[in-house]
């Protein structure tokens, strides 16, 4: 189980998250929705361990052990994955070179054919592997490549920060497919999104958490997501 326990977080002295509680089991899909600036990305970054986000109190627990004080890369090695809302472009590093090293460091066999297959599955040709990391990729291509990394790493828990923002209909299908596949493999998924559409693509049961002003304001099932889509975050 992946848990946030009464989590309070600040950035440069400003309080951003207040008393967040979240419990995610293997194979479960938890959807985080909320208006802009409500703290969704802060939650993702904090769970992953970005050094800019300071945990003031509370805990982050992975399978019964606190990972609150572990650096990002150690959390990653323990099986926590995050897809970025804005994946960085690295102009001097080939995507393939990057992936081979990432797989090696995570104790996986760096198999080029397998990487190609996963990229193809995400609708990305092999040519993307020879390009520099995310450089010159469209919005949708970047997000698809992020989820290709998720499929390659098979994490225990994946935090996906708006994988469906700024992507076209085709990308949406690939991204939904990747999330379904990960869920069925037992990955617990925390999905941050603005849209219910992606949830139709995934087509599975899920939990919804509405976050505003750094607090979880409401929780429920698919009916809550539907309500939010129809009525907004009013009350």
């Amino acid at each position: 189980m992946f848990e946030a326990k009464d989590l309070n977080v600040s950035i440069e002295g400003l309080v951003k998250l207040k008393g967040i509680n979240l419990e995610v089991n293997p194979g479960e899909l938890h959807v985080i929705m909320g208006p802009n600036g409500s703290g969704k990305t802060t939650l993702a970054m904090t769970l992953m361990g970005h050094p800019k986000y300071k945990v003031e109190s509370g805990d982050i627990v992975l399978d019964g052990k606190s990972i609150r004080d572990l650096p990002m890369y150690e959390r990653a090695k323990l099986g926590v994955f995050m897809s970025f809302q804005h994946p960085v472009e690295i102009g001097s590093l080939r995507y393939l070179t990057f992936l081979l090293e990432v797989l090696r460091k995570n104790g996986k066999t760096p198999d080029i054919d397998w990487i190609k297959r996963i990229f193809n599955k995400m609708g990305l040709s092999e040519a993307f592997l020879n390009r520099n990391v995310n450089t010159g990729f469209s919005g949708g291509e970047k997000k698809r490549a992020e989820l290709a990394q998720m499929l390659l790493l098979s994490p225990k828990y994946a935090i996906l920060d708006e994988p469906d923002t700024g992507v076209d209909v085709d990308s949406m299908k690939f991204i939904g497919g990747a999330i379904s596949e990960s869920l069925s493999r037992g990955t617990g998924v925390i999905l941050i999104t603005h849209y219910a559409r992606i949830l139709n693509e995934i087509g599975k049961g899920f939990y919804v958490h509405i976050i505003a002003d750094g607090e979880i304001k409401a929780e429920g099932g698919p009916e809550l997501a539907k309500k939010v889509e129809e009525q907004g975050f009013g009350e």
């Binding site: 992953m48 650096p71 990002m72 890369y73």
Partner: peptide, 17 residues
């Protein structure tokens, strides 16, 4: 930061860059 989120220590990340 991006590379470290994938399991690379800072040293590994610089080295890979």
């Amino acid at each position: 930061t991006y590379m470290m989120s994938r399991g690379l220590s800072e040293e590994d990340a610089i080295s890979l860059l």
